Amino acid sequence: MTVYGIGLGPGDADLLTIEGKRLLEAADTVYASGELSQSIAADHVPAATIEELSFPMTDDDEQLRRAWRTAARRVAEANRVGDVAVVTLGDPNVYSTFGHLRRTLDVLYPDVEVEVIPGVSAATAFASALGVEIEAGSGIALREAIDGVAPVGPDRLVLFKVTDAETTAEKLAEAGYDVRFGRRLFMEGETVITDDPADLTDGGYFTLAYAEKRDLDREFLTDEFRTEESQSDELRTDEFRTEGQR
């Protein structure tokens, strides 16, 4: 019997992987943290079968440890009688509360077998949502940007937890970056994509930013196709002129 940490993807229930769906549907017990995770899981298994695990948003270390111990005990007890699915947004190993649970299980319940099923993470899904291409050979960094923080340095940045978009945008602009924001990407009816941080003034937790240095020197081998096509157009135009002179 196994505890499966299953990544649900960035918000659209259809972006759950085939393996994740199979194991979720086969699990004897399903745990989810938060209403959004529960609602996505409920697209695949009956909502009544999903139990909530509480992971409080707090800086109180003792409160967090109590929550992790409680969650680990519940999961370990359920695992004695069957397979357990613990679902989480994105990927369980990328900026996820599942890591706290897994480490707690490792220490307190070392006999529990844990397997992680990766999910589509916002770290990659943002590119499709924002229409961004990160071409081969590019440098890109993944950072948190809570409370107006604006890390700089690399040519391209993906910033998570952007809770003060206006301050972050101002700092990035001063440092020579263009920036776009995405909120609640792939969450039906809730997605916001904007260049204007004034559209994001309520401090939403599920907000990210993509920042790129201005005037990057970007050359692609495929640019030659445009040159070739342009030359072909000129040749065709010249043929029309020649025919008109006959």
Rank of each mutant, 00 (worst) to 15 (best):
D202Q: 12
S121V: 06
F160Y: 15
P197Q: 05
N93L: 08
P92T: 04
V87R: 01
L185N: 01
A127E: 14
T222S: 15
T201F: 04
R103H: 09
V152A: 15
F220E: 10
F220Y: 14
R183L: 07
G204K: 00
A173W: 04
L105F: 07
D202A: 12
L200E: 00
M187P: 02
R143T: 10
T207C: 12
P92S: 08
P110E: 11
L208V: 13
E115V: 12
A209K: 00
D155N: 15
F160R: 00
T88M: 05
F126C: 10
T88A: 13
D106M: 06
R183C: 12
T124H: 10
K171C: 09
L185E: 04
D217F: 03
A129H: 05
A145T: 08
P151Y: 03
T167M: 09
E174G: 04
G131F: 11
T124L: 13
M187Q: 15
S121W: 03
D196S: 07
G99K: 02
V94N: 01
L101H: 01
V132S: 09
E212I: 04
D83N: 14
E113I: 05
P154F: 02
R156G: 10
A209F: 00
A175L: 08
P151G: 13
L216F: 06
A85T: 05
T201R: 08
G139C: 10
Y177D: 11
E144L: 10
G119T: 09
V112F: 05
D106V: 03
A125L: 07
E144G: 14
G189H: 05
T163V: 08
I134D: 13
R180F: 02
P151V: 04
Y95D: 10
D195V: 04
G137Q: 07
F206Q: 00
E113Y: 02
L216Y: 06
I193M: 11
P92G: 06
G99S: 13
R183D: 06
G99P: 03
V116W: 03
L142P: 08
S128K: 06
A175I: 03
A175G: 01
V112T: 13
A85F: 02
D202L: 06
R102I: 06
E188C: 06
F181V: 03
D199T: 03
G90M: 03
S138R: 13
P151R: 05
L89P: 00
Y177F: 08
F206N: 01
S128R: 05
E113K: 10
A141H: 01
T97H: 04
T163D: 14
T88G: 12
T167G: 07
T222E: 14
T97A: 15
T194K: 05
E135A: 15
K171H: 14
D91N: 02
T168M: 14
T167Q: 13
K161D: 14
Y205P: 08
V84N: 01
V116S: 12
G137L: 08
G90E: 10
D215I: 03
L108H: 11
E174M: 04
F186G: 00
D155I: 05
P110V: 05
S121G: 13
